[in-house]
Simulated assay, not measured.
Amino acid sequence: MAAAAGEERKKTACVTGGNGYIASLLIKMLLEKGYVVKTMDKEANSHLEDLKKLGTLEVFRADLGEEGSYDEGVAGCDYDQITTVYRKELIELGVQGTLNVMRSCVKAGTVKRVILTSSTAAVSSRPLEGDGHVLDEESFSDVEYLSAKRTGLWAYSVSKVLLEKAASRFAAEHGISLVTLCPSVTVGEAPDRQAELNVLRGIERASGSVPLVHVRDVCRDEIFAAEAEAAAGRYICNGLDTTILEISRFLAGKYPQYDVNTDISGDLLAKPVALLPSTKLEKEGFEFEFRTLEHIYDDMVEYGKALGILPN
């Protein structure tokens, strides 16, 4: 995009997987900040057309499995934010798709930084005995252990570790500035319409807690990682560590009108046995907006009411 005389050129960001949960809100926030945004996905979606009302948004068709598919979308961009869509049966495609996007960044020659969205599933899925564990950016989920056990959400964690390490090697070989964000269980904006108790059980069992972060904080972190010159390496993005029991009791007390079930059986934690602090991120100047269950769920409930999912 050429700037007119005397007009500062707008920064251009590419967001892959534009139909995704995090990506769609990230596009909205980038447009509101004045960015030119390019996005791409395998299929068209009406919400992307609606977002064009907020600013300059270009939508391209692309396929993670096709090398060169992202060339047109990435061309001329300053930042590339890779928010990959996970599919259980396609661990290898997740790795190759990420590298395909990064190859397009190399070809473009304009991309100053690539921001890869991974997950704390790539940090905390490992054997944990006892309590008091504090994990940081040096921690990686145990691929050999997960591949041998093959229980719960093992494939998701494995895929995130493998694509992170492949992206890191590629970035080092090609001189790319790569920042990797590891958000925890991302919630907010739209209450999930389907029961997620089994998913939360799997997360709590694998991670030693239920780590939560609001989607708006994740998107703010994506922009922070792009704009902060000193940003480098890997960052945990986690608002708070909790448990299934703590969430259910909080919801029952705060919103008695919704008859939240607190009679939950099974092997559940009374308190988190592992913590995922965002110390590195906060030391570099990032501030979370949502740090308590009350802040997170008040926002979700109000949004649910606005959508008509929850009664007023």
Rank of each mutant, 00 (worst) to 15 (best):
2 A>Q: 13
4 A>E: 13
5 A>W: 15
14 C>Q: 03
16 T>I: 10
20 G>I: 08
23 A>C: 13
35 Y>H: 02
39 T>D: 00
43 E>S: 05
43 E>K: 12
47 H>E: 07
49 E>L: 12
55 G>A: 06
57 L>G: 02
59 V>W: 06
72 E>W: 02
73 G>D: 04
74 V>K: 00
79 Y>I: 02
84 T>G: 03
85 V>F: 13
92 E>H: 13
93 L>V: 11
94 G>H: 10
100 N>C: 04
112 K>W: 02
115 I>Q: 02
116 L>N: 03
117 T>L: 03
118 S>H: 14
120 T>E: 06
122 A>I: 07
125 S>T: 10
126 R>E: 12
127 P>Q: 10
128 L>G: 04
129 E>I: 10
130 G>A: 08
135 L>Y: 08
141 S>I: 04
141 S>R: 05
142 D>L: 12
144 E>K: 15
144 E>T: 15
144 E>D: 15
161 V>L: 05
165 K>L: 13
168 S>F: 14
174 H>E: 00
184 S>W: 01
185 V>A: 04
187 V>I: 12
189 E>S: 00
189 E>K: 12
191 P>Y: 02
192 D>F: 15
199 V>F: 14
204 E>Y: 11
207 S>D: 07
209 S>H: 05
210 V>I: 11
223 I>M: 09
227 E>P: 07
229 E>Q: 08
231 A>W: 05
232 A>P: 02
237 C>W: 01
240 L>E: 02
241 D>R: 01
248 S>Y: 14
249 R>H: 15
250 F>W: 00
250 F>P: 00
257 Q>K: 12
259 D>N: 14
259 D>S: 13
261 N>I: 11
263 D>R: 09
264 I>P: 00
282 E>H: 08
283 K>Y: 01
283 K>N: 12
285 G>Y: 11
285 G>E: 11
293 L>A: 07
294 E>W: 03
295 H>L: 09
297 Y>A: 06
300 M>S: 10
301 V>L: 07
302 E>F: 10
307 L>Q: 03
309 I>W: 14
312 N>Y: 07
